[in-house]
Design a protein around this nucleic acid. Structure first.
Length: 255
DNA sequence: ATGGTAGACGATCTA
């Protein structure tokens, strides 16, 4: 069972790239972030024609998350129950083929110390509370998403340039580590022990050409999911195409 | 301190 997380940076602007990739790679489950449209504007038919069921949680212009699955989607819930007042569409969860999955788009955070930064830390605390509660189900659970945090300097091409900047500041990393310390594992790190692999390259400053990337898209696995983990990786190919998202699809496979 | 690029949307905001 192949599960992918992918920040597509607008599903409508990226529809051709996405459907082509789905037909070539036929993953079982795709966790999308930054769909950037309201539910009634989501290109349902084009995705269904690729063989997927769909669960969406959208909003106008910004954010937006979705789950695509070749299997039926059950127990769909939108938003974090621990962050109920949030009007931003950043979390969706469902059960499919016996696996609980979630797509999360953690706030970017703007500049360190800004209002957006504190909102990011609040969101991460709420995410931790929810994942702590859900761990008690003792299910295979995969939380894929754009966490907007590079866990360590090994996840950054240029750690000096990013030192204590957004995506790399110590409070953000501590918030992520607190989630991992509940008992979740970073799937990519179980299979890759060197620097990288990166998942995001800024559109600006020729970052892709220089491979000046960061690993901020993660798949967190419950212990029951880790027991079934067979592989994990990043598909860099779509990042090099015309009209590419600035993020690459990141995948894992469960036995 | 600013700028570099991209998307939504229709002037800026977000990343």
């Amino acid at each position: 069972m192949k599960i992918v997380t992918w920040n597509v940076n607008s599903i409508r602007a990226r529809l051709e790239n996405i459907t082509t990739w789905l037909r070539e790679n036929h993953p079982d489950v795709v966790l999308l972030q930054e769909t950037k449209c309201q539910n009634h504007d989501f290109p349902q038919e084009a995705i269904e024609d690729c063989g997927y069921n769909i669960a969406i949680h959208g909003q106008k212009s910004y954010n937006g998350v979705a789950i695509l699955s070749k299997f039926p989607l059950e127990d769909i819930s939108c938003g974090l129950p621990t962050f109920a007042d949030d009007e931003q569409a950043r979390y969706i969860e469902a059960v499919t083929n016996g696996v609980r999955v979630a797509s999360v788009y953690v706030p970017n955070g703007g500049d360190v110390g800004s209002d957006k930064y504190h909102y990011k830390l609040s969101f991460l605390a709420a995410l931790k509370d929810h994942l702590k509660a859900t761990l008690l189900y003792e299910e295979a659970f995969v939380i894929g998403g754009d966490y907007n945090i590079a866990p360590t300097d090994d996840d950054v091409n240029d750690p000096k340039g990013w030192h204590e900047q957004i995506l790399c500041s110590t409070p953000e990393r501590k918030s992520l580590r607190a989630i991992l310390n509940l008992g979740y594992s970073d799937a990519i790190r179980l299979h890759h022990h060197d620097k990288g692999p990166y998942t995001w390259w800024d559109y600006r400053s020729g970052s892709w050409a220089k491979d000046d990337g960061l690993r901020i898209d993660l798949l967190l696995l419950s212990p029951q999911a880790v027991d079934r983990l067979a592989g994990a990786g990043v598909d860099r190919e779509p990042r090099g195409l015309e009209k590419a998202s600035d993020h690459a699809p990141t995948w894992c496979t469960l036995l």
